[in-house]
Amino acid sequence: MPDTKDDFELVNSFISGNQSAFNKIVLKYQQKIYWHARRMTGNHLDADEVVQEVLIVLYKKLKDFQFKSSLYTWIYKITATRSINYLKKRNLKQIFSFEDIEAKLISSSEDILKDIETKEKLDKLEKALQKVPLRQREVFIMRNFDEMSYEEISEITGVTTGGLKANYFHAMKKIMELVQKDENL
């Protein structure tokens, strides 16, 4: 968990007009924002779009942040909400479009991954992730990649721990089957 005292100072500094404090906050959390968005959307281009949306919201709302939760939890909450909203919009676009936007984006050559082997492995996982419902995907990512407890996830998503566990079990089972079907990771 990131340093809360440091976050408090950065937020206060930003509120009192220091723009570089905002840059520091972004530098500190941008990877977390990116990777959550990337795993949720399944590709770099959409993840980049979500990152920019999150930063715009963050910039607008940071002055109202009252430290009722940690800054990390708050940013993660914004990221999770923005990612889901973005995916809903993308699904709508796909319904009204003749081309398969999702497949096009996933196979897009634009990426930040350096290693081709890692990219291939990640592609398989991303494809499997895209096949499970949003809420199951979300809890799977939070548990496995961000190592969050059910309580933390519950604070972010507003879902009860019981509901989260049910979603997680289904996600874990289905994703494992999908990945095994595709090939061993």
Binding site: Q31, Q52, L55, Y59, L113, N144, F145, Q180, L185
Partner: peptide
């Protein structure tokens, strides 16, 4: 499967993307 997932936690990426995030914003 669980062990394989841990391999996706620290993926090596092109850092220039994260340098450009703020100017882009």
């Amino acid at each position: 499967f669980k062990e394989s997932l841990s391999g996706f936690k620290n993926i090596e990426v092109d850092e220039s993307y994260f340098i450009d995030t703020i100017p882009k914003f």
